[in-house]
């Protein structure tokens, strides 16, 4: 699908500029409010929210059980506002979970920010439900044959986030040291959390 304009044509920029200015003249759009939304999603909301919850779950078993039971309540303990009906699913050595929305692009905005382009792509939406093992391998996650893969297709108003496995060898790391290791893709289920290469 490389012939499509994944990020638009030059004409589209002009069209959007005109639309905003027309709606502003009508009093229906305030550009300052638009700026604020952009800033909010570029700076304030992002996968760091989810990473904080994952790191806390790794070091605090009681928090982990609360997170798996009622994610919104547990995450709000960390001072994060959860606007979605979020459910957290745990990856284990025998079960790997991965999230998609095949019908549109539903995603847990309040804990992971806006979704990456690949998550919204037709290739991911079409393929991960049918051949998750192959898609995960292409994205760098090779799973043994005896690991069950469970694909969560977000077809209603529940939003899924994955609690990845804590990497072996991270036992001595503090919560603050763990947080930067927990990347967005691991909380969607298309990556594992790894320790940085030593050297």
């Amino acid at each position: 699908m490389k012939t499509i304009h994944e990020h638009g044509t030059p004409e589209i920029s002009l069209r959007v500029e005109a639309l905003e200015s027309l709606l502003e003249e009508r009093g229906l759009i305030n550009p300052v409010a638009v700026d604020r939304v952009i800033q909010h999603f570029e700076q304030d909301v992002g996968p760091l929210n989810g990473a904080k919850a994952v790191a806390r779950a790794w070091i605090d078993p009681d928090f982990k059980s609360r997170l798996l039971q009622d994610a919104a309540a547990a995450i709000s303990e960390l001072g994060i506002t959860v606007g979605d009906n979020v459910q957290v699913i745990e990856n284990t050595p025998k079960e790997h979970n991965v999230v998609v929305c095949s019908l549109c692009s539903c995603y847990p905005w309040s804990v992971l920010g806006l979704p990456p382009t690949w998550y919204k792509s037709p290739a991911y939406r079409a393929r991960v439900v049918r051949e998750p093992r192959k898609v995960l391998a292409e994205m760098g996650v090779d799973l043994a044959d005896d690991v069950t893969i469970r694909v969560w297709d977000s077809s209603a108003e529940i939003r899924y986030m994955i609690l990845p496995q804590r990497p072996a060898g991270s036992e001595s790391l503090s919560e603050e040291e763990l947080i930067p290791l927990i990347m967005r893709d691991a909380m969607i289920g298309v990556a594992n959390v790894t320790l940085p290469d030593k050297g």
Binding site: K2, I38, E42, V128
Partner: peptide
């Protein structure tokens, strides 16, 4: 789209921005 064939590889962009072009953010914000 679930299960359709023919869409090729999942293209992953490293360190992509939230909005790639100015118009994307403007549309979203509007």
């Amino acid at each position: 789209l679930g299960g359709l064939h023919g869409f090729g590889k999942v293209e992953v962009e490293q360190d992509e921005p939230v909005f790639h072009e100015r118009w994307e953010g403007r549309v979203f914000g509007m």
